[in-house]
Design a protein around this nucleic acid. Sequence first.
DNA 1: GTCTATAATGAGATAGAC
DNA 2: GTCTATCTCATTATAGAC
Lengths: 225, 225
Amino acid sequence: MTHPPEPPVTSRQAVLDAAETLFAEHGYDGVSIRDITGLAGVRLAMASYHFGSKENLFDQVIARRAEALNRARRAALEALQRAGKPELEDVLHAFIWPYFTLSTQGGAGWASYCRLIAQSGPGDRWRDVLSRHFDETAQMFITAIHACMPRAPRALAVRGFVLSVGTMVSAFSGNRRLTRLSGGELDAEDLRATCEAMIPFLAAGIRTLPSSGRKAGAAARRKGK
Amino acid sequence: MTHPPEPPVTSRQAVLDAAETLFAEHGYDGVSIRDITGLAGVRLAMASYHFGSKENLFDQVIARRAEALNRARRAALEALQRAGKPELEDVLHAFIWPYFTLSTQGGAGWASYCRLIAQSGPGDRWRDVLSRHFDETAQMFITAIHACMPRAPRALAVRGFVLSVGTMVSAFSGNRRLTRLSGGELDAEDLRATCEAMIPFLAAGIRTLPSSGRKAGAAARRKGK
DNA sequence: GTCTATAATGAGATAGAC
DNA sequence: GTCTATCTCATTATAGAC
């Protein structure tokens, strides 16, 4: 369904691919249209011709893969729900595994895409584009998480989902912390190992939320602060 | 020990503060030296006079608060260890709570600082500066986490720490996901509630790592993929 | 659709007076 | 330490030929 090594045929795709690569490496403002068209092997004017503005090019970069990613996640979730009542781990798996699969086997573009997403900042540009493309699917997964802890209020499922997204996105950010801090014993690029650790990690975390909600501040009070 | 609302007295500090604010909002490349000196209320040339290059200004912005943060974290950790054998929750508390306290009560600069850290990308600029300022303290916390799970290899403590850092940093990033996805029921700016949920969340997650290491890929195989 | 050329602006950094 | 003025180069975007 995805065509990893296929070289871009149209100049439009070439620009899109180059923009994705460079945005992921240096951020939106760290890259000029000249850099992008240079890497794409097309002339400067092609960027404006196809996309008008740099802002719009960025938007298209995010949008292009968002749909495929959402589709994969929802397909996994629906398959799960048809098979019966899923466990928390299964729901997290349905959310995280497509990210892993596409990032590692979907071609270099997908890896760049995941690193790019991890650079989202608090500014309007990011807030709008992420909300527009990901919130709807996010709500489906929050509902599925909530179904695994039906006695808890939905707000706790939201909190668990948001914490999980932060953890996952950071794991795909391309920071080499894991390698560095382990002195090379662990490999930050072994995303499979990270995902396999992360899913039970997050599931266990989410399961603590109902009780930590009740005894709120326990850790804080224990330190007398 | 920190003086939140004190206005900067020197032009050097004014530039540093303005740079911190603007970098946090728009990222390194999203801000010009003119923007910074403009907000600081000083002339353009003062930036070069005090800091030489923009790169160096950025470095100083990160460095300035890194020391205070590391000191607070280490003090909390040492106090803990003097009091006996700490629980995993206590170690995480010692790591996260200074971040929370400074971010919410250390003045606007600290809040900006935490948002800025969350924008770290995979590029050299970030990797170098974060490694230089934070790796040493990170190793102390990894050791403390490892002491809570002594039968597991240290690599698992590293993995738990790295996942935890990602979760924490994302929680302080200023993305308003929690508010948006909960329809306003939860408040993304209530960092206290987030920290109080996060600490047991992460502790539970770390405790799963030894077992998920042994039965690696269980969730994956269950889905037959 | 693709190119050259250029317009219009903004960037980082510095020289040199005070 | 602080200022004005400026150098030099890169930036986004567009006009208009082919």
